[in-house]
């Protein structure tokens, strides 16, 4: 095993999928999915239940054959070179499964061995990973005693045993406590900082905001390309402003002919960038409006998600 063997040539696009579709009998789970996940970035996959996120991830990971469309993962094609694709991917399924009679450490060691890592190294790495996901005190306890969130963390550790280039996380935040979610975010960011790619599907949209570089929206088996991206960009320009005297704020804005939308007690304003936002705040303060809250109008992803407003399946 040479050092060059496991350091593949840097691939700019870790995942490229084009027009991917897959049906199960009459159910068209994924109809047309197109996406690109660059190396060194975190991309979110967002969509309502049953829109085909899991199915898409299965196809990306080389477990499920697409009916049509092309996929390239880490430079390999899963339909001709599935083993290379699987080797490059760390996959955390949405279904929690563990070998009930084995301990957490045994689980990770055996999984490492399944990737042909020597047993001693696999064990060492298993310990590191258990430490990393804060399960070290469960190292020698059977996996069946773990709680849901703990199983989720074990599943994350399992996805990392072979130090993959690409991480596919299917609703990883499910069942995690707030602290674990923040740690997950840190881990994912560190992972991306090393030049690896992460695709993460989640429902906890507010959290994704801080975690992801890019988002792909999915609805009824289709990825919403530029429209959704434009909506996210638009949502990011929206600021929510609250003043002690809302009437004074609205009067000042109307007087200066600044467009705004009333939103409850406050108003929503749009700024193309942070520079403009800062200038506007200064101006409002100079106008004598007593501002007590000034910031982005909620999660951009959540706003986009709600704005898509398409019926769930």
């Amino acid at each position: 095993m040479t050092a060059t063997a496991q350091a593949p040539a840097p691939v700019r696009e870790a995942i490229v999928a084009n027009g991917v579709a897959r049906s199960f009998g009459s159910v068209r789970a994924v109809q047309d999915a197109t996406l690109t996940v660059p190396a060194g970035s975190v991309t979110a996959l967002i969509g309502p239940n049953g829109c085909g996120k899991t199915t898409l991830m299965l196809m990306l990971s080389g477990l499920l054959r697409p009916d049509t469309g092309t996929i390239t993962v880490a430079g390999h094609n899963p339909s001709t070179d599935a083993a290379a694709v699987r080797a490059a991917i760390g996959w955390m399924p949405d279904q929690l499964g563990s070998w009930d009679n084995l301990t957490c450490l045994q689980t990770l060691t055996l999984m490492g061995e399944a990737y042909r890592i020597p047993r001693a190294t696999a064990r060492e790495r298993g310990l590191d990973l258990l430490e990393r996901v804060h399960l070290i005190e469960f190292a020698n306890r059977p996996a069946r005693v773990l709680s849901r969130g703990q199983k989720q963390r074990l599943s994350l550790a399992r996805a990392l045993v072979h130090d993959p280039q690409v991480l596919l996380l299917d609703e990883p935040a499910n069942g995690l406590d707030p602290r674990s979610r923040i740690e997950l975010r840190t881990l994912v960011r560190e992972f991306a900082a090393e030049g690896r790619a992460v695709l993460v599907s989640s429902h906890v949209l507010a959290e994704l905001d801080e975690m992801v570089d890019d988002a792909i929206f999915m609805s009824q088996g289709r990825t919403l390309g530029d429209d959704a991206a434009a909506m996210v960009a638009d949502a990011k320009t929206r600021y929510l402003v609250h003043a002690l005297d809302p009437a004074a704020l609205q009067a000042a804005l109307t007087g200066a002919d600044v467009p705004f939308e009333a939103a409850g007690e406050g108003v929503i304003m749009r700024f193309v960038d942070e520079q403009r936002a800062a200038e506007a705040l200064t101006w409002l303060v100079q106008q004598g409006v007593r501002i007590h809250r000034f910031g982005p109008a909620g999660s951009a992803l959540e706003q986009t998600y709600m704005a898509m407003n398409e019926e769930r399946r």
Binding site: M1, A3, A5, Q6, H76, T80, D81, A82, A83, A84, R86, A87, L110, G112, E113, A114, Y115, R116, I117, T121, A122, E124, R125, L127, D128, L129, E131, R132, L160, V161, H162, D163, L187, E190, F191, A193, E194
Partner: peptide, 27 residues
Amino acid sequence: SASAPTAVTPPPQSGNPWRPTFHGVSL
């Protein structure tokens, strides 16, 4: 790496092999 300090070097894979191997079967 970020995930864990112990470096691992799983051998590269290619194609889509299906044959049983001694290591795999015994594991």
